[in-house]
Design a protein around this nucleic acid. Structure first.
Lengths: 223, 223
DNA sequence: CCTACCGATCGGTAGG
DNA sequence: CCTACCGATCGGTAGG
């Protein structure tokens, strides 16, 4: 009775050792498997969409077996939400740094430039799949999660309002501030659809074009 | 031998007659079932996304059984493509009418206004799910279909370029024309994400805000 | 984190 | 356009 049982256990084990490639050092030890899952999920969600990406795809990209993502995330939807939340936290942190770097007492136009430039980086920079996923998969999360994200979005948008209001005071922005903010975010966000990192305009050039589009020439400057 | 066979046929037929609700006149005779399928698919694709909408959902919305959509469309992807193509044809036709209605010899700013206003109608007007589906499900079609749609998009975008170039000549548009077009379309297209028909701004107000945002005051006008 | 597996759903088809 | 059905895939789980 013992021998057959031992054989039943030994045979699959041997097969397994042959069938599964050995993991490299970076993949194994770091204990940072959850972060790796998030990065892989973000990249796949952006490229293929949430529904078109299976949890098996994500597991494979992270070097795991099909059931393992559910050790880190309760459901596929929870993984999506985590990607979005991570994206917003990163975007807010980057934005705060960008504003701080620009320094206080800066002219509103220069502040807007810093905000726009940072926004393009968050959207189009290297390794930035998280925020685009949030922008383009909003439909796939529950209303409960949506309202939690709306708070983070509010925090991200907050610094833009006074800047736009000041520019309107200066006479450099003619449109209604609230609608202007929506239209401006649209112009920027849509770039994730057409921007190609390998060609065409750089982020500086893009930023300049956006400011030229939105802002009138400062008073007293020659046309 | 004859009688049992007749019973086998009769019984399911009776069940069917009881289980399936009678169709009304409009649903039956018009021979326009394909168009109805397209409309239902567009609405569902827009609300839930392509992947999250099953062909069964679409069939049910059109009052059909699950297999019937495949009588009209070879695959689910072909149905999506048909929605997008229909959307573009409609948008181009509407745009040509809008430009013709505006009349020849119109000032570039007035022409841009007509184009923007029409674009908002195509995107946000009643019963306009087709173009938003094209904008937000571009990922879900093949590269072959994508390049066919790109031609239609080219036809749609064509009238915008000379108008923007003329505005730049007039000094009312400062940004690079090519990038300006991309940013402007982004600002408009993104409205499909946030615009709520039941509240807030009307399309006239939206159009005015967009023009205020993009265009500098005409030369000689008081600030 | 892996193995082995389940129930549900889905796109699509044959035949009428 | 309906009926009845198939094969594949998918999210998720129990048990280790």
């Amino acid at each position: 009775m013992d021998k057959p049982a031992a054989e039943r256990l030994a045979a699959p084990a041997a097969k397994r050792a042959r069938g599964r490639p050995r993991k490299t050092a970076e993949q194994r030890d770091d204990g940072n498997r959850r972060g790796e899952l998030l990065r892989c999920a973000a990249r796949l969600f952006r490229r293929q969409g949430f529904d078109a990406t299976s949890t098996r795809d994500i597991a494979a990209a992270a070097g795991m077996r099909s059931g393992s993502p559910f050790y880190h995330f309760k459901t596929k939807a929870a993984l999506l939400y985590a990607v979005m939340e991570e994206g917003m936290h990163g975007a807010i942190a980057r934005q705060q740094q960008a504003v701080a770097r620009a320094g206080p007492g800066l002219a509103p136009a220069a502040l807007l430039q810093a905000l726009v430039r940072n926004h393009f980086e968050v959207l189009l920079g290297a390794g930035s799949d998280f925020v685009p996923v949030m922008l383009y998969e909003y439909r796939s999360i529950s209303t409960r999660q949506r309202s939690r994200l709306a708070q983070l979005q509010g925090a991200y948008e907050a610094p833009w309002i006074p800047v736009l209001a000041a520019l309107q005071q200066e006479g450099r922005l003619r449109a209604d501030v609230k609608l202007a903010r929506l239209l401006i975010f649209g112009a920027l966000n849509w770039s994730a659809q057409w921007y190609d990192r390998r060609q065409a305009a750089g982020l500086d050039e893009l930023t300049a074009a956006a400011l030229d589009l939105f802002l009138a020439r400062p008073a007293g400057e020659a046309p």
